[in-house]
Design a protein around this nucleic acid. Sequence first.
DNA 1: AAAAGCCATGTTAGCAGTAACATCTTTTAT
DNA 2: ATAAAAGATGTTACTGCTAACATGGCTTTT
Lengths: 320, 320
Amino acid sequence: MSHQTVSRVLNDHPKVAPKTRARVLQIMEKMGYERNLAAQMLTTQHSNTIQIITLDAAFHLDVTQFTQPVKQAGYSAVIADCTLRNLAKTFDEAAARMVDGIMLYAPQLVMPDKELVRLSHGIPLVRRDYAIDSRLTWIGFDQQHASRLAVQHLIELGHRHIGHITGSLEFINARLRYDAYVRMLEENGLNVGPVYVGEYGAEKRDMKSGYEGVYELLKRGRKFTALQVVNDRTAIGVLRALAEHGLRVPEDVSIVAFDDNPIASYLTPPLTTIHFDFDFQARLGFQFLFEQIKDPHAYKHHQHVLIANLAVRQSTCSVQ
Amino acid sequence: MSHQTVSRVLNDHPKVAPKTRARVLQIMEKMGYERNLAAQMLTTQHSNTIQIITLDAAFHLDVTQFTQPVKQAGYSAVIADCTLRNLAKTFDEAAARMVDGIMLYAPQLVMPDKELVRLSHGIPLVRRDYAIDSRLTWIGFDQQHASRLAVQHLIELGHRHIGHITGSLEFINARLRYDAYVRMLEENGLNVGPVYVGEYGAEKRDMKSGYEGVYELLKRGRKFTALQVVNDRTAIGVLRALAEHGLRVPEDVSIVAFDDNPIASYLTPPLTTIHFDFDFQARLGFQFLFEQIKDPHAYKHHQHVLIANLAVRQSTCSVQ
DNA sequence: AAAAGCCATGTTAGCAGTAACATCTTTTAT
DNA sequence: ATAAAAGATGTTACTGCTAACATGGCTTTT
């Protein structure tokens, strides 16, 4: 029996006699045969692997959200984290590994699509966040809409002095939320501010930003009855700092945050926050990626925008 | 010029004339040459990659803690998450990928070392948590000691009725903390309990366990002035549930938790918790892994136990 | 000056698969 | 019954690299 017949069995080639196939499978079973990925890669130029690339994922990552849809589709999934400095190298490694597709999760990355396409060595690529122009597929949430929901909620509760605490505006999400906050207040004839812009963001930094943001805003005088806070992690720091000043939430200060991190509903008070369906976002992203892999030439890039909604809990109330 | 000379340049072989080397490098630069990993793997049987395998990492993972030391050592790092069901398959994939070493992070995995060795296809392996017997390298914290620190702190504050809330005891850490809690109370002539054993654990489950645990314990009557809680995430749920019952922390109930998650010090009140240096644990683990890769035959397995310490904050006070 | 040794480079083979084409066998159509 | 088509299997070549051995030029030793 030739190795070619064995290869045909491995690849489910139709023209193999059933009993030959059975015999090959039986012998493979007995010998504990495993196909050599390196050799397969060498000829086919791919590895049945999807690589997830994250940028500065010092915030804790929900890994299963990424890996589960990939495995379901029959690929093997690997995650590689990198910094901005070695982003190109990480793409090179993915190419060397001959991955079939790349899911990029780098909400803080501001880079023209053209450049990303160049970095990706022609490997199908989807950004699960944002893209600058429209030469890539991405799935994002309408941050402006989300932010409007948040501010509108506060306005409807009667707040007229609404502050904003954010991390670094290098994050596109943070920038968009901030912009919409400003616009929304202006449209409603309200004064903008006070505003605190904190540090660029890993988890610990976020909490620190929130904490220091409150100290800073209060140092400038207590001119707000509500705060829009860029995300739940930052809000944790905000809650702490307010407690240290003897200010109650929501009676003295209402807070609305973003993300609906699982922690949000367990904080005291449970956070009113913008809920994003990240799970759906991830699944949709992989769906687009698989389409692209199946037929790279016919594939047209999508820019998909998802709508968030407001989860009202107990960190907001009407102004006293 | 033969391809072999090129290969020698790539591998820093000493016997290449400096100007030949320079010429090769220059041409490689100009042509944008990149060595084919598949072909290299095919001959050398390895890929300069370290694979980090995590089990059910639905708790959010600090990815950089894993990847940074690996990259510093000149390897490329990939992370693969898996469930217990496809653990073997994940190891197979790592073998197929011809990784140089595997770091396993699966604190909930109870499996004889012998079996893990079998699964690992002879690839150098380090467990960053625990191992059952001593045929593998692992780096763990002395959980018994940690738990003793926690209980002793409460006893010294005058508490005589100390409850315990934990997730599933399938996690070795949870089991050890529970065991030490029981022993410590018995040694001090105190009654054990009340105890609540919650669900097996991802992040959300942990918080839920803590929340429901408090409800359950209070339903049985308020027979405790302090609680040892299995980790910070669970404590978040505990704090919430106590607040819903109008119980103050620490005045009515003192709480000591484990992990010193960055969030712990930003909660209200900031948590008294056992501090583990996870960063050091990870770095040490990789150090052992690299030693093992360099000289697999001379390598002797280590079982390294690290000591935790107590970070006293504001969730504990002397009994009122 | 010849023998020996080292240095730089070249040649060949093999790693484990798949693609493409070739061959032989069986079935189907006329 | 015979040609054509289809089915099953085999042969050869190629993927891009490295190990091992081979070669030829130059230096050192005696």
